[in-house]
Computed example of a mutant assay.
Amino acid sequence: MTPIELSASGIHLSRGGRIHAGARPADAGCDGWHLKSFHARTGADVHADHWQVNTEADEIMSCVIGMIRLYLRPERQGEGEEEIRLTAGTAAIVPRGRWHRIRLDIPSTVMTITAPCGGSSERRADPL
């Protein structure tokens, strides 16, 4: 058994109890969950200029080290973005189908867990 470098390898957790490190197995389809951890130094590392959505499952967004802000897009016209500050060791659950984005307060390590399928993104209309 060898250690897994989380920042360089995704982890696929299948519903059948198998865990696979590295690229998602070709036969995995949309089964299970995907864990991803990475260190972000700039907004480009977290795609701060894009909204993201997961249509198949909720997502856990965690700040392992540092400080980030999680923004949820307004659900109704005229409402403002919801801002959630995450500090080291905290997490938030982003509901399925809710558009969201991340902004760094300082360089941070972020970990996410979500379904491996059903995600999409779009560029923010307003510049950062």
Rank of each mutant, 00 (worst) to 15 (best):
E5T: 12
E81G: 07
E79N: 10
L13P: 00
I93Y: 02
P3E: 08
Q77M: 10
T109K: 11
G89R: 04
H47S: 14
I102E: 03
V110G: 03
S62C: 12
R15N: 15
S121E: 06
A91R: 12
A92V: 01
A115E: 08
A23Q: 11
K36L: 07
L128C: 09
S121L: 11
R98L: 12
R96G: 02
D45T: 12
L72F: 11
R18K: 11
S7H: 09
T87P: 03
Q52T: 13
T90G: 01
D27N: 07
M1E: 13
A48V: 06
D105Q: 08
A92R: 02
A44V: 13
S108V: 05
H47Y: 13
I68M: 13
R73A: 15
T114Q: 14
G80E: 10
I93V: 13
A57N: 05
G16V: 15
H100S: 08
R85T: 12
T114A: 11
T112D: 00
P25A: 11
D49F: 03
A88W: 00
T2V: 09
E79T: 05
S108Y: 05
L6D: 06
F38N: 03
W99T: 03
V46Y: 09
A8H: 14
A40W: 01
W33P: 00
G16P: 01
K36V: 14
P116I: 09
A125S: 14
I106N: 11
N54F: 10
G43R: 04
R124D: 01
A91V: 07
T87V: 14
A92W: 05
G97W: 00
D58K: 04
E81N: 08
D126T: 13
R24V: 14
G32C: 02
T112L: 13
V46N: 05
D45Q: 10
W33A: 10
